[in-house]
Design a protein around this nucleic acid. Structure first.
Lengths: 216, 216
DNA sequence: CCCGGTTTTCGCCTAAGAGTCGAAAACGGT
DNA sequence: ACCGTTTTCGACTCTTAGGCGAAAACCGGG
């Protein structure tokens, strides 16, 4: 019962970690989590655990990642972890408890147990899903410009993306909707960028990636 | 700890089910499974459970599907299930215990608990992965013709596929290797089909489906 | 008020991938 | 030798992707 909660902060992909106070693995950084309650399913339990670290309303997307079950993954009593991937928009209120921080995924601190591996799995899952679903909505603010969206995608994917291609890609799939408004230009001028929003803010698979299919 | 083991039999996608003898849900059809042992991880445990129903060497691919955890998904004591997707080649020995059968996925018998939902999830996962990975190897015999492969893909995907496109699609990704041999024609004659094999028989992601990426 | 600098947006071009179609190839049987 | 059957291959079209540069729309300063 663990979650790798990812969010783009300052043009870099971050993950929510808290520093353990007690053994085992004291002072190491761990993913938020806890134990499944008797009357919960794993999803509502995960949301309950997360509410101790962040405002759950900020978690725009939450999905199962995998089960981690190596018998020796944790010293002491055996524990099986159902890992989740959570996404928080980049404009969400970053206030977290004092022992908790947003850590850049590319340079993780010393992590507890197998949590580093889980973060890597979460990152790869996000990278894949950005291309064949509309998960981007869970990283972006409600309204955004193509430039800011480009920064978010570049941070999550790990490489630079072309703004023209990004816009065409999302428009072709009907994900992008122009709101009509425009953002004020920066201090050095420039053409004001028009504002967009995602058509849907719930996960949808936009590419069937089903080959060999007749067009209709 | 459950597995939806899929295989194409007689040009149709089937799933391995066994008929429960005792309550709850007596006489209903259930997925093979069991309880996690103390010294196992979920994968080896799943393989152990499956060995009671089929020859495990026939399971060409096994991956985690999802955790099913609704508190009332089973009457009586609570149980959390880690569900797996297993694939068995179409030429594998179909001998199974007397209470066990290959059932067509499209017309399932009355299933126990939430096992019907799990089978649907497994089928959807397979459909997706056929297009961006080489999982096809886990459905196919070691050597096969394009025609037989076409039947396998059509059964798994649920719609007809064009042999020309299938061959091009797999060849472009380097999955297909011509063995040089050829299969004897059927009773009504016809050009003998050449035999192919998959280049690799371990899961590989062939499409990065990473858009916006510069070609090099 | 014009002009250079800056940022966004749009259109055009080329290349690659997917799907359709039909002809040629290679068999068995009569 | 001919015919029906099945596989294989090439040619064609259409859509999508990526690259590039020009035009658009703003700033501030002279």
């Amino acid at each position: 019962m663990l979650a790798a909660v990812l969010s783009v902060r300052e043009a870099t992909l971050h993950v929510l970690l808290w520093q353990r106070a007690r053994a085992p693995h004291a002072h190491r950084w761990a993913l938020p989590g806890g134990v499944l309650g008797a009357r919960e399913d794993v999803r509502t339990s995960m949301l309950r655990q997360l509410s101790e670290k962040v405002d759950v309303r900020e978690v725009a997307h939450l999905e199962q990642l995998a089960v981690f079950s190596a018998p020796d993954r944790r010293p002491g009593a055996r524990r099986i972890a159902t890992a989740f991937l959570g996404l928080v928009p980049s404009d969400a209120d970053p206030r977290v408890p004092p022992d908790t921080r947003w850590c850049p995924v590319a340079r993780l601190p010393e992590t507890a147990f197998d949590h580093g591996e889980i973060v890597r799995g979460a990152r790869e899952r996000l990278q894949g899903k950005l291309s064949y679903t509309n998960v981007g909505f869970a990283l972006a603010p409600p309204r955004f410009t193509i430039s800011t969206l480009r920064v978010l995608y570049a941070a999550a994917l790990g490489y630079d993306v072309d703004p023209t291609n990004l816009q065409r890609f999302l428009s072709r799939r009907g994900q992008l909707v122009a709101t009509g408004g425009s953002a004020p230009p920066g201090p050095s001028g420039g053409r004001p960028a028009s504002l967009y929003r995602f058509r849907s803010r719930r996960l949808e698979v936009t590419d069937e990636f089903v080959a060999f299919r007749p067009p209709r």
